[in-house]
Write a protein that binds this DNA or RNA. Sequence first.
DNA 1: ACTGAAACTCAGGGTAG
DNA 2: CTACCCTGAGTTTCAGT
Lengths: 149, 149
Amino acid sequence: MDKIDSDILRFLQQDNRITAAELGAAVGLSTSAANDRLRRLNASGAVLANRAIVAPAALGRTLLAFLFVDLEPRSDEAGFAAAMAAAPDVLEAHHITGPHNWLVKLRVADTAALQRFLASTLKPLAGVIRTETLIVLDTAKETSVLPTD
Amino acid sequence: MDKIDSDILRFLQQDNRITAAELGAAVGLSTSAANDRLRRLNASGAVLANRAIVAPAALGRTLLAFLFVDLEPRSDEAGFAAAMAAAPDVLEAHHITGPHNWLVKLRVADTAALQRFLASTLKPLAGVIRTETLIVLDTAKETSVLPTD
DNA sequence: ACTGAAACTCAGGGTAG
DNA sequence: CTACCCTGAGTTTCAGT
């Protein structure tokens, strides 16, 4: 992970369909050297995945919400984590410090779908004491791009 | 946006470096027809971006935190939104319902960097009354992949 | 949907520090 | 020995039909 690698990661985070030739020109490497770096970064695990970022509206997921979830003491945290990972509506689930146990980010179609998630997916889980729902009114920024410094 | 398009979006969200030939075989289209769909989805805005997802650890960003931010009534919300959008440490900033005004997601190197963000970036902003920091202890799921139903 | 031209990828092998 | 570069064969893309 030298400076050239982090330069490459910066470009790939903006657009991973850049060609090895363009990338090489941008960071001062030959096409094949850039290609070597590309493969190494993908193989080493520094690049976790290559994804298209889809507009939520294009798939009808216009409602963004965060949930706080409180679990009973000594309840099955791993089971809860697995249930969140398996739920398609759930984009993120984090175990957090503070008054609540989990913070869950989800994208659904509308409030009816949110209600359905709470009633059908969350409420049946063992250990769930209570939840608190925060609705997102407006998003100023939402990205997966990490600074490369 | 017919069924084939949403099938294509499902594959592209998993791996956008799939070739038009493979994609066509997967969804029952010729290579060139798949290619046409690919270009249309990118041009129409259904695909917002094509990004490499980088491991936070590879860039030394091992601390994930959420902040609640409270602003004074009638303060400059747009200015705050712009400041968050411009801050590299900030991955997300959402205007939310509930007792707080904003929910901010950030990834930094360590608690010292978090402190620096609070003191140097957040505190100087006009209208910020108080903040509450939630540290992420463990992440069960974190993805940008939307379900295609 | 097909086709052909241009562009791109990706090993293999060579070279310099 | 590692990182980089060159080259050529095989794919892939992308217009035009």
